[in-house]
């Protein structure tokens, strides 16, 4: 059994996966609390990496370290290294804003700006380059189609985005992030406040998007991870318990804790 999983791991490596992001010995403290305890993980390019773990295990902290949104949290200390495309992003001269255009993020609760639907889609990208009117319209249409929102809103692009349902708002948020053309998209439990239908729509979208983007998807829903994950990272109590190809980990987890969690959603750490 042990060998089998080793083989499946090797076979993933065999398909020449490139790791776009590497975390090496990442520690995070918030004030006195040790939130992340020496995390070493890789994020493979053009795959869906799911981060799972019980609530409070540090999933959000981990994903929020990757685009340094955590920098502004009160009393935070970060140690270790994060490599993106081969260079460290934790240096003091990293241009954080430009880093975040390459590593986009979608949050748990959809957050639309008090502007129109169209303006929301264009909100990030218009700071990066000048677009003509036609380019703008094309971009809006293209991105809204990608998140399958176009049919529902094409006739009311100038309406306030707040008038959309929560599920539609979350898809709009994804479209807004896609418009910036990042390489990596981080999503922190993006479906946890949505209805099942919108959830499924977003899951299907993720599978399509991995052709072009690298996806890091935090979820506490094991079934969801099973449906979409290629690569799986299991955190518990701020520690990395196990990571590996999703298929291998779901079929025969190496670690007894992983096994218990995947089976009963229970973690004794």
């Amino acid at each position: 059994m042990e060998q089998q999983s080793l083989k499946s791991k090797l076979s993933v490596v065999g398909k020449t996966t490139v790791d776009i992001i590497k975390l090496e010995g990442l520690h995070v403290w918030i004030k006195e609390n040790h939130i992340l305890d020496g995390i070493d993980v890789n994020i493979p390019k053009n795959k869906i990496t799911c981060i799972i773990g019980p609530s409070g295990s540090g999933k959000s902290t981990l994903i929020r370290s990757i685009n340094r949104i955590n920098d502004d949290v009160d009393g935070i200390t970060t140690q270790g290294n994060i490599n993106f495309n081969g260079s460290s992003i934790l240096t003091s001269d990293t241009d954080i804003a430009s880093l975040r255009t390459q590593i986009g993020m979608v949050f748990q609760k959809p957050c639309v700006f008090p502007k129109s639907i169209k303006e929301n889609v264009l909100f990030g990208i218009q700071h990066l380059k000048k677009l003509s009117k036609i380019e703008k319209l094309q971009l809006v249409e293209q991105k809204l189609k990608t998140v399958s929102l176009w049919k529902e809103v094409s006739h009311r692009l100038n309406d306030k985005a707040i008038s959309l349902s929560i599920g539609q708002q979350q898809r709009l948020c994804i479209a807004r992030t896609l418009a910036v053309k990042p390489e990596v998209i981080l999503l922190d439990e993006p479906t946890s406040s949505l209805d099942p239908l919108s959830t499924r729509a977003i899951e299907d979208m993720m599978v399509k998007l991995k052709e072009e983007y690298t996806i890091v998807f935090v979820t506490h829903n094991i079934q969801q991870a099973k449906r979409i994950a290629d690569h799986l990272i299991f955190l518990c109590d701020g520690k990395l318990i196990e990571q590996g190809s999703a298929r291998a980990m779901f079929s025969c987890p190496q670690n007894s804790q992983t096994k218990a969690y995947l089976k009963d959603e229970y973690c004794a750490c």
Partner: peptide, 24 residues
């Protein structure tokens, strides 16, 4: 959440203040 979302889209602090916070 407005600040974090705008940061996630790669805006600089001054842009966030000018285009997200001041309008609100």
């Amino acid at each position: 959440k407005y600040r974090e979302t705008a940061k996630g889209l790669g805006l600089y602090n001054s842009e966030i203040i000018k285009e997200v916070l001041v309008p609100i």
